[in-house]
Design a protein around this nucleic acid. Structure first.
Lengths: 150, 150
DNA sequence: AGATCACACCGAACGGCATTCAGCCACCCT
DNA sequence: AGGGTGGCTGAATGCCGTTCGGTGTGATCT
């Protein structure tokens, strides 16, 4: 998995697709100096190799009623390495990472209201080994952008 | 902007598109019980309203040489509300948020190595008003998924 | 009630684009 | 030199995005 090299043309293609994945392969190819067929071939291989995981849409969280964003440091009294499913089972959690430092897990949470955020914290405490949480509410998001490709 | 209501069908369409934005509108319509034309119409309106911001691709950060992920709490001695551009100018920063609490800004950083992470911290200190940083390195990512649509 | 309007959907038609493929070229390995 | 591999071009084909006329429904106004 993940084999093969990602060259400059691949990176340019990825950057273009991140910007707008709906554009035609002919357009895409022109940007990097390739025919439509060649561009298509490269993108197909990038997908096969798992470099491009999927094509998706970016949505406005507020429009979906997920206007409250918070990061929560989760303290634990036990090894949390196998707790993926426990965190994934809470749908309001958008990301979960094991971290180095005093806390052991960092999660990114989106809810409609702060009351719902509180309820997520309650459900976090129900996870085996969780001994504490420290929530940080986001007041304003400067930006959220794709992984840098170039 | 952001006008109009997002009903259950819209949410189902968004959820499908988040899962796979390459599928045909006929398929998409079938999932929610709509014709291809109607599905296309709803998605077009969701785009116009800004509910769907863009169509993009999800990439594997490791494959692009961005294997190191860290969250950095940035302390400041001044008002940081207008510092968007300063943070955006550092390409390794993927997200930047103003937060409530002792720190004032939280940023998500992706680099190839921890040396490069250190260099990002150095550049953060160059931003006017930044008085300190506290970096938390991610050891393992459980998951990162789209905003919940349903 | 009846008339008018707005809105959402369907189904068909058109044209463009994704996808495939044969042929070609450059490079590497033996 | 010869054969194999990988990547590219350009063209052909068929599917799909996109548009549009027509219909049904519910709301508003007279």
């Amino acid at each position: 998995m993940g084999n093969g090299i990602v060259d400059d043309v691949d990176r340019a293609l990825i950057a273009e697709l991140q910007r707008d994945a709906t554009q035609a392969y002919a357009t895409l190819g022109k940007v990097v100096g390739l025919s439509a067929g060649a561009a298509h071939d490269r993108v197909r291989k990038l997908r096969e190799r798992g470099v491009i995981r999927r094509t998706t849409v970016d949505v406005d969280p507020t429009a979906l009623g997920r206007g409250v964003l918070a990061f929560v440091m989760v303290d634990s009294s036990a090894w949390m390495g196998d707790a993926t499913e426990s965190f994934a089972a809470i749908p309001e959690i958008q990301e979960a990472h094991i971290i180095a430092g005093t806390a052991s897990v960092l999660v990114k949470v989106r809810t409609a209201t702060t009351e719902q955020l509180q309820d997520v914290l309650r459900r976090l405490y129900l996870i085996e080994g969780v001994s504490g949480t420290q929530a940080t509410v986001v007041l304003e998001t400067f930006f959220e952008r794709p992984v840098r490709a170039d």
